[in-house]
Design a protein around this nucleic acid. Structure first.
Lengths: 204, 204
DNA sequence: CGAATCGCATGACACCTGTCATGGGGGACT
DNA sequence: AGTCCCCCATGACAGGTGTCATGCGATTCG
């Protein structure tokens, strides 16, 4: 019996995944959580063999949860199951110690196999996504540029961003300008879009 | 036996929902599609009693699909099952002839009941969402303002928006200014965010 | 130790944006 | 017919934005 932990903020999806996986004779869902910051505690209690984590979650995101889980319960392998196949997510997931990365577009039948492979120590990665991830390289943004872009997501002016980050307006404009150049965009809004699509910004 | 059609672009979620619903003795999944524009054809072939439609789908969105389905197969009731509980989506879903509206945050156990209620002619609506929807009223945006905001989502400049919509730049700025005023925003990016959050813009 | 890179900052400049006044044309409703 | 609202457009203005040159302190790396 492979013991599973499910983490997904959408209760319906979580329950449905549980139903899907319970159909397999060798799989058993032993814990379900809806928030990233509940993952470690739940894993400590239920000692799962494999944790299926969504990336987008309240509390902390699935990538951060994977890092914590690796340290807290090293025997538990991690399979990321996420909506968005952003290349940057894959990289972060792997460096966070995940054993597999599956997008929610993949056929339902393959999920159980992915779980079994991860459990047996293999790595599971979407081939298309892996190619994209290799082609495209790491995020070109510096930490501060990413911060500023992140702050620009809600649509505020430079003045607002400067205040929330405790920077001068000129510095904010410089970081933005640099980020716009690196993303190949022409406006900050476009730069935000590009960065989000590539997974260069934190989820949410 | 209640015959079901599932429409969701994420294969994994679709399959999982199928597994969940098949557990019920009185429910039967007779068709699955991944695109909005496949809903009507599938419904014609399989004559489902209830169609579960996601809002976000390639081809045409679930709201448009619901409208077409109502005309093409009037005996089939529609239950929208969607990720985002945007008030505007609920309104559009109801005017599109849907019998129910469920967000993916709801507990998995309630889904089967929702299906049964919809099948028996009742309406199923998330109470919280219904309240929000009533509080907040219809979209204040004119058709053209929504078009311009939609075009502004990708982050292009006024000149780009003007070209794609075959308008003068001045007109684009006027529509944007008006939309910014109506949304209570200060910049176009903020206006886009507000409009999207409220479901005043088309999905995707 | 240099050299490179990054974060932070200032100031200046061309350009883009958001706002406003104003106007004409068209459909809807009284 | 008159009124109202929407669409489209023009022109002008204040203020925001993106770019560039330049500078300083800190950190990293060969």
């Amino acid at each position: 019996m492979i013991r599973l932990l499910l983490a997904d903020d959408q209760a319906l999806v979580r329950g449905a995944l549980a139903a899907l996986l319970q159909l397999e004779d060798d799989l058993e869902v032993v814990a379900e959580v809806s928030r990233g910051d509940e993952v470690v505690d739940a894993a400590r209690e239920s000692t799962p063999d494999v944790a299926l984590l969504d990336v987008e979650m309240p509390g902390i995101d699935g990538l951060a949860a994977a890092r914590l889980l690796r340290d807290a319960v090293p025997t538990c392998r991690v399979l990321m199951v996420t909506t968005f196949g952003r290349p940057g997510y894959l990289k972060q997931a792997m460096s966070a110690g995940a054993s597999g990365f599956v997008v929610k577009d993949t056929p339902a039948r393959q999920l159980a196999d992915a779980v079994r492979r991860v459990h047996s120590g293999l790595r599971v990665v979407d081939p298309t996504l892996a190619a994209e991830s290799l082609t495209q390289g790491d995020s070109p943004l510096t930490e501060r540029e990413a911060d500023v872009l992140q702050a620009a997501r809600s649509g505020g002016t430079v003045a607002v961003i400067a205040k929330t980050l405790f920077l001068s307006e000129g510095t904010v404009r410089n970081h933005l300008s640099s980020a716009i150049g690196k993303t190949g965009a022409r406006t900050r809004a476009e730069a935000v879009r590009v960065a989000v699509d590539n997974g260069w910004l934190l989820p949410h």
